[in-house]
């Protein structure tokens, strides 16, 4: 099957599985298309979709680049978390907003993202596992800071950024589009980008571009970390606004992982997948009061990715 057909069929299969899952709930399978239609026809809800899609798209774009280079990190979750805490600190505690808080987030994301890259490049540690461990470590760090130095008031929570500091939806989506376009151009039109792609598919070919595997791994780690950092900023200023103590991570970085794969490891593809995912997630929120668990959206996303990848692997032979 062709690429586009595979993706469309994969998404359709994911949605069908979701509707079958809804058979077990009160509102029934038709609730899903109804909720999707409700989101698509409401300007207010579409604004939420855009705000949610922006960080997922940005994280997914960076991950797409890393996956092209064969660096299978899933650390975007922890990188986003720490990055958005950094920009929260600047905005709500130091009253430094705008570009500086964005820059701080990118830096923190890049540094945290570099760790599994260093581990892989210099010690050969598998990045899937190391980046996952770092997600849990990041969660602990955030919980620690939320319960100690950043704690505000009677409850275990931080300050929240004011309504006036919340990012406009079109601006958030614009940043996401620019990031995806930039990364796409980097991959296809620059020599380091070509080296990355070559390394991912055939490691020895990268030598043609005079790039060492160490440098490519570190570049991929740094770039995906920086993107996750930006995603963390977009998450905070888009809808998160502050933190309470958490038992699990919010999961938007993981959605970025799925978006990168559904987008066939292309930054622009990840943006498209992110839009679809946030549409699904928003429809999921609408269904929650009717007794549909919020995880339904994640299930549909995961199955769509699985189906797409499977269909593609058949088409490729």
């Amino acid at each position: 099957m062709g690429r586009l057909t595979s993706i469309i069929a994969g998404i359709a299969l994911g949605l069908m599985a979701g509707m079958i899952g809804l058979l077990a709930t009160q509102p029934g399978p038709l609730a899903l298309p109804r909720a999707l239609a409700a989101v698509l026809t409401s300007p207010g809800l579409l604004e939420n979709v855009a705000r949610l899609a922006a960080p997922i798209a940005v994280a997914g774009s960076g991950l797409a680049l890393a996956y092209r280079a064969g660096f299978i990190t899933i650390g975007s979750e922890g990188q986003m978390l720490l990055a958005s805490l950094a920009s929260l600190y600047l905005i709500a505690y130091l009253d430094i907003g705008g570009p500086w808080s964005l820059l701080a987030a990118v830096l923190v994301g890049a540094v945290w993202g570099l760790v599994p890259g260093l581990f892989r490049a210099y010690a050969g540690v598998n990045e899937v596992l190391s980046s996952l461990m770092l997600n849990y470590i990041a969660l602990s760090i955030v919980n620690y800071l939320v319960s100690t130095s950043l704690r505000e008031g009677a409850f275990t929570q931080t300050r929240f950024i004011g309504e006036d500091k919340v990012l406009e939806a079109p601006l958030a989506l614009g940043i996401a589009l620019l990031t995806a376009l930039g990364l796409e151009a980097f991959l296809t039109h620059t020599i380091p980008g070509a080296a990355m792609q070559a390394y991912g598919s055939a490691p020895r070919m990268a030598k043609t571009y005079l790039a060492t595997s160490r440098r490519i791994i570190l570049q991929a780690a740094l770039a995906s970390g920086a993107a996750a950092g930006l995603a963390g900023y977009l998450m905070l200023t888009g809808f998160q606004r502050g933190f309470t103590a958490m038992s699990t991570t919010p999961g938007y970085g993981y959605m970025g992982v799925l978006a990168a794969w559904l987008g066939l490891r292309s930054p622009l593809g990840a943006l498209g997948a992110a839009l679809l995912f946030s549409l699904l997630a928003t429809a999921g929120y609408l269904l929650q009061p009717q007794g549909v668990p919020g995880s339904m959206a994640l299930l549909v996303q995961a199955l769509a990715v699985l189906a797409t990848v499977t269909l593609l692997s058949r088409g490729g032979r």
Binding site: Y254, G294, S295, L299, L303, V305, V309
Partner: peptide, 20 residues
Amino acid sequence: ADQIVAGLALFFAGTALADL
């Protein structure tokens, strides 16, 4: 299909199904 992607998708699908 690619075992890494399928494994990751299984992780997410399993997490979601467990919540359900």
